[in-house]
Design a protein around this nucleic acid. Structure first.
Length: 285
DNA sequence: CGCATTTCCTGGAGGC
DNA sequence: TGCCTCCAGGAAATGC
């Protein structure tokens, strides 16, 4: 399930593979995964130059010449990448864009189709699903911004998963960050102490940056550029480890449902009550 | 407002 | 081996 580190891994490869590229022939296998501009992609995309590749949270944006913006959201099982033209396309490949003058093509695929492509050129008319909204990218949020958003009276995990508030965290990195910061996923965000907010902010940044270095987590479907799996799943300390001992204290990790998502936490390390700052204060810096 | 529930969808796992 | 059911979840919509 691609979250911020997996999306960042993919766009770093796309920036390289699409540098200076111009779109050529377009084939659409499933039209219902493409939204926004009502004109057919076969007419809209050819001859466009790739200007930039970026992301906010889990949303990928490719700026094309002529003011066309190409957004991708990968949902649960989506993938976007450049492949050699002679490499057989994976099952559930829905859109293929040849790159002019290259023996390579950009492919979008998505087995479960929770993801999609959105094309916009500034025109008002939009068909299909609305582009999922995103707030501030969670890696770009400073501590002050993070703290302001955490003033809401909601379960902290529900808030961290809400892409309108802070964009980029999904179920895996949410559980990992809350564990690292020793905060129970059901704590009301507004009851967190300044110390806890600081701990959580640092934990989120540390985990996301480490996961990007490891090229993301491959649990089942996610594959990085060229089909290579990520490595960060080896570093998971709570996600899907319910019933196993906590790596920090040995207590049995428990499973609960928060915001409709399966959640794993350590009942000893992540108490529902506020954890005092003194016990976990850093010695240096 | 916030929360749980339902919807979309497929492949993998487990039961029999 | 094969069929069935359940489950995973990103995000929006709906009901309370």
């Amino acid at each position: 399930m691609p979250e911020l580190p997996e999306v960042e891994t993919l766009i770093r490869a796309l920036r390289h593979d699409l540098r200076g590229a111009r779109f050529g022939r377009v084939r659409v296998a499933r039209r219902d995964v493409i939204h926004g501009d009502p004109r057919p992609p076969e007419r809209l995309l050819p001859r466009r130059l790739v200007r930039s590749v970026g992301r906010i949270g889990k949303r990928i944006e490719i700026e094309l010449s002529g003011g066309l913006r190409f957004f991708t959201h990968l949902g649960m099982t989506g993938s976007l990448g450049v492949w050699p033209r002679d490499e057989p396309a994976a099952r559930h490949t829905h859109l293929i864009i040849d790159l002019q003058g290259q023996s390579a093509q950009l492919r979008f695929g998505d087995a479960r189709r929770f993801g999609g492509i959105w094309l916009f050129d500034g025109g008002e008319l939009s068909v299909g699903k609305p582009l999922p909204a995103v707030g501030c990218d969670i890696l770009s949020a400073n501590l002050a911004c993070f703290g302001r958003i955490l003033g809401a009276k909601r379960a902290i995990k529900a808030l961290l998963l809400d892409q309108h508030a802070l964009a980029g965290l999904g179920n895996i990195y949410c559980d990992e960050a809350l564990f690292e910061a020793c905060i129970h996923p059901l704590r009301k965000a507004s009851t967190l102490s300044a110390d806890e907010i600081g701990r959580l902010w640092r934990a989120v940044g540390r985990i996301l940056r480490a996961a990007i270095r490891a090229k993301g987590s491959t649990i089942r479907d996610y594959r990085g550029p060229g089909g290579a799996p990520g490595r960060f799943q080896r570093a998971h300390r709570v996600y899907a480890r319910d019933g196993l001992p906590c790596t920090r204290c040995g207590a049995e990790l428990i499973r609960l449902i928060v915001a409709g998502r399966g959640t794993t936490a350590c009942p000893a390390c992540q108490p529902m009550g506020s954890t005092g700052p003194s016990r976990r204060r850093r010695k240096t810096r």
